Amino acid sequence: MATSCDQLKKIQGHPCFGGNHHKNGRMHLAVAPRCNIKCGYCSRRHDCANESRPGVTSRLLTPAEAIAKVREVMASPVVGPIIKVIGIAGPGDPLANEETFETFRLVGEEFPHLIKCMSTNGLLLPDAIDRLHELDLHSLTVTLNTLDPAVGARIYGHISYHGTTYRGAEAAEILIANQLEGLRRAAGYGMTIKVNTVYIPGVNEEQIPLIGRKVKELGAFVMNIMPLIPQAEFAHIAPPSTETLDGVRAANEAIIGQFKHCRQCRADAVGLIGRDVSVGQSACVVPG
Rank of each mutant, 00 (worst) to 15 (best):
V79R: 09
Q231M: 09
L144S: 11
I159S: 00
N121L: 04
L228R: 03
C5N: 15
L272D: 01
D136K: 11
A171G: 02
L29Y: 02
F234E: 15
G18Q: 00
S43W: 04
I273F: 05
A128V: 01
L29A: 00
I129P: 02
G157P: 15
Y156K: 03
I83E: 04
G288S: 13
T141Q: 07
F234H: 14
I229R: 10
V142G: 03
L218K: 01
A49H: 07
G163D: 08
R275L: 09
V270Y: 02
P287S: 06
S52F: 04
G25W: 09
N204H: 02
G163R: 06
F104V: 00
L183G: 02
N36G: 03
V151M: 11
L218C: 00
P94I: 00
K38I: 13
N36V: 07
K194W: 04
G55C: 01
H158K: 13
N196E: 13
D47C: 10
E99F: 08
R45Q: 12
I208R: 12
I256R: 00
V78M: 10
L114E: 00
A267Q: 01
V73W: 02
I82E: 14
A89S: 15
V286F: 13
I11E: 08
G25Y: 07
G182L: 06
D136T: 07
S43H: 07
E110T: 07
D6Y: 09
I208Q: 12
M118G: 08
C42H: 11
E51V: 04
N196K: 12
V222L: 01
T165F: 01
E233R: 14
M74R: 12
N145C: 06
P33Q: 11
H261M: 06
F111T: 12
E110S: 07
V198K: 08
D93G: 08
I159F: 00
N252M: 00
D130N: 12
V73F: 12
A171N: 04
M191N: 06
A220S: 14
G182H: 10
I200Y: 04
P33A: 12
I83R: 01
V285Y: 10
P33M: 08
V142P: 03
M118W: 10
Y156D: 04
V285H: 13
R185G: 07
G87C: 05
M74T: 06
G87H: 06
L95Y: 00
P126Q: 13
Q264A: 13
E134N: 10
R266G: 01
A49D: 13
N204L: 08
R266N: 10
R59K: 14
E173K: 14
N36M: 05
V107I: 13
P287I: 04
L210E: 15
N196C: 07
Y166D: 01
V222G: 03
Q231I: 04
L135A: 08
V277Y: 06
G188F: 03
R131E: 15
C117G: 08
A64H: 12
H21D: 14
C5T: 15
T3Q: 08
T164C: 01
T244Y: 09
T242C: 04
E109L: 04
P149K: 03
S52I: 10
A150D: 15
I37E: 15
R44P: 03
E205C: 03
I83V: 11
I229A: 05
P81G: 00
F101Q: 08
P227W: 01
K260H: 10
S4H: 11
V142N: 13
G163E: 01
